[in-house]
Design a protein around this nucleic acid. Sequence first.
RNA 1: GGACCCGUAGCUCAGCUGGAUAGAGCACUUGGCUUCGAACCAAGGGGUCGGGGGUUCGAGUCCCUCCGGGUCUACCA
Length: 624
Amino acid sequence: MLVLSSLKWPGSGTFCHSRPWRATEISLAGPGAGDCAVAMHVSFQIAADLNRAVTSAALQAGFDPAGFSAEIRTADPRHGDFQANGVLGYAKARKLNPRAVAEQLVAALAPSMEGLCDLSIAGPGFINFRLKPDVLLQWLGRYGTVEMLRSGASALHQGQRYVVDFSSPNTAKQLHVGHIRGMVIGEAICRMLAFCGASVVRDNHIGDWGTQFGKLIWGYKHLRNDEALATDPLEELERLYKAADAATKADPAVLEAARAELVKLQAGDRENLELWQRINAISSGAFTEIYRKLDIHFDHQLGESFYNDRLNPVYEELTRLGLAEISEGALVVFHPEHPRFKTQPFIIRKSDGAANYASTDLATMLYRTEHFQADAIVILTDARQSDHFEQLWLTTQKWFGMTQRRLPRFEHVSFGSILGEDGKAIKTRSGDPIRLKALLAEAEDRALTLVNEKSPELSEAERKDIAAAVGIGAVRYADLSQNRSSDYVFAWEKILSLEGNTAPYLLYAVARIHSIFRKQGIEGPTEALFANATPPETETELALARKLVGFASTLELTTQQLRPHFLCTYLYELAGAYSAFYAADKVLVDAEPVRARRLLLCARTLLVLESGLSLLGLRTLQRM
RNA sequence: GGACCCGUAGCUCAGCUGGAUAGAGCACUUGGCUUCGAACCAAGGGGUCGGGGGUUCGAGUCCCUCCGGGUCUACCA
């Protein structure tokens, strides 16, 4: 249990910003691991093998196990494929010569490394590992299908059940550009976690039970246009909401009437309940259309209304436990130990007795823990809701702790806003939000112009299909490729660019590889083509092979931090390494072993690019 | 007032719980297609990592402080 002491789990005061579960470290927990694992066969996570081997060697060399951790990192290619930085800190703490310590470690390590990699010590005591070309070849040979990649990656989150809450729009409103990040990042996170062995429950926590329904129902009853409702129902609902909202502001009597409609709804009035259901159905239909276009899926759609009859027990328990108190008529939770939340309450029931989203979110935490048996709950919303989720998590920890409930991990995956080119929240000229439907249509239009220009020889149907993949992919990739915690500026020119870290560049790399296999007269690669492959030799071959092996570390990093842009950066670098290889080393040469190994590199690049892009939710193309 | 996020090349951004000479793309300069898709590749210039202090063998990364921008701060979500 050498490194596990560095793991902090929620509940010990680290709260939702803790960074749990780093798989290379967890894999150390097996007793006696390390001696033979490396030599047997090359495994998916080579970094984990190295970690085991170095840790084992450290024990053998007589290091103090409590103070040593290998600290395996992917290295700058100039130095090697991986490096172990652990001796530096270890030597410092004991006032030893770091270089001498590194030499001791390498001496103990060398036998187990035979055949795997070359070792070197550099600088003040870095230990560098450079994988042997033959090992690269073995890895490429072994991880040759999506199933093999998945099976290799599955150790990362095996047996963990994640409930992921994403998208979660409000009913009766159109999806606009502000919704897309949560949808796209959420879908990618679900796919990546599932690929890495987790059992993922996708839940669309729809906002279907808010104060907006009073106005909406009043508007529906008094202002609706049946024709508009038939042609574009969601548009009409949105108009009704706006009109009703304006009417309540203009006339106190209308406001009163709208409140009365809400009271009737919440009391179970049959007519209003039916209306509510119809409104939800309309919304749901419109959402589904966009979800289908973006290939986004949910296992459940448990909206706020689902928790209506689960709220009272929450109020009662929290009150009984002394966590909640009445303040200014509302039921609230203060957190005296917190600099801010000691005075800023978490309002879990409004003074008029109605629920708000704190009420439902608490009930939701409980439901996900008990019903879904969640090991981890992941909620995606924009960063402006950070306070709310911090309060929710503080409250949940105390609540579950005092009632001896199992506490799952919790991650609020927050993200920045999408800005217009003026640096302010993106809007249309008239000041309305840009509708997602319109945005996606424009993306496809612009992509079609490009495709028409670049590939006029293709049929119209094919060009349209390509434009859809490129356009939607570009929008999606723009959302994913940037660090989610920062705001980003939306610019068509940038995201549809063919150069740089963009979807079109990656899709082009994929299409170009397909073309090589087409040239061979086959639809896709077959293993027979690589039977005589020799280990990579040229600089560009080696660089590409190393990059491919790095897929394993990238998946670990990406799912550990729930930041898809790590995978984007990796895929971009992989495509770059491929392009350099492609320009420098002709693939279809006469010499059989050379052709075989280059075709192998092509095939595996294709596999990793297509797998990776699919994890991000992008559709790839055979030609473009 | 307080809390959180952000500040890296002219512009847009990476930088993996502190590690080797801070990296990409765009733009700019130059070179490469009668040979596998040039929607590509190669090379070059361009940096007081907002300022200042501190911790450390080592700081873009951690701590303090100041400046600038954003968000949130009692019953919307």
